[in-house]
Design a protein around this nucleic acid. Structure first.
Lengths: 135, 135
DNA sequence: AAAAATCGGATTACAATAGTCGGATATTAT
DNA sequence: ATAATATCCGACTATTGTAATCCGATTTTT
């Protein structure tokens, strides 16, 4: 299906929440409770976003997360790549050499699909958290 | 993952094949063999495309499939909708009233995500089989 | 020292995708 | 007519990926 995973959905919700409350540091627990997201799963997602540098963490009591960049510099594409790597429409665009399925390299839809994917990624790449949060 | 399902991938490959060989009627067996797609699975996919009116079938020996419309009038979006219904990025856009998840109707990302989805669907809706087949 | 938070590996549960099987029906060629 | 070849279609199974959970360790503030 053409669908965003829960992980990405939660990631967007969380970053939006952090962006809106950027005056203070936000704990995973607060986001979990306010947004209705399973705590453990959200924690993992935030840790992943932290590893990829989209947010910064503070451990201990009164700890939590803050954005590393301005919401206007944070795109949906960034979140997708941080949480799922260079995901692609078809398997053939994942590997470095572009050869995964049986049809490669003479696949008749490889090139057009690659163009299609580029266009879609362009849409994701030009939608920012700032827009989503309408700060 | 942001990925097209095998069903859609096979659907695009099959329609492209039929479009290129539009001078004759094409059997599922031929497409299966030429494109390396599991026969039974492809058959189901073609039957589904037939039910949705994208192709027409002819039973019996020397039977097979032909396109119902010109390749230039057949978009990737048409194929996606025929094979997966009104698929959407988030669950909330699937139901008629737009209310599925716990956050609805006060979901903070519903509107921006809907716009995002619209843009992406526009990309799929403007890519035709004719382009993919480069007839 | 206790409390509250992040960190992170391992495991489980579930759902969707992908593929298979068996048989029925239709059409054409011989 | 009948055999061959194709679509048609429901039910089933296998596989994979997603989503969620569990448990313990670590960090930091009070």
């Amino acid at each position: 299906m053409i669908k965003l995973s829960k992980k990405i959905e939660y990631g967007i919700l969380a970053l939006q929440y952090i962006a809106i409350h950027s005056d203070k540091i936000i704990s995973a627990k607060e986001i979990s409770e306010q947004m209705g997201i399973p705590y453990e799963f959200l924690s993992k997602t935030l840790q992943q976003l932290m590893k990829k540098g989209l947010i910064q963490s503070q451990q201990g009591i009164r700890g939590g997360y803050v954005l590393s960049r301005k919401p206007a510099d944070l795109t949906v594409k960034d979140i997708i790549i941080a949480l799922e790597g260079k995901s692609s429409f078809l398997d053939c665009f994942v590997s470095s050499n572009g050869l995964i399925c049986d049809r490669s390299p003479n696949c008749s839809i490889k090139d057009p699909m690659e163009k299609l994917q580029f266009k879609v990624m362009q849409v994701f790449g030009t939608t920012t958290i700032a827009e989503i949060a309408t700060i």
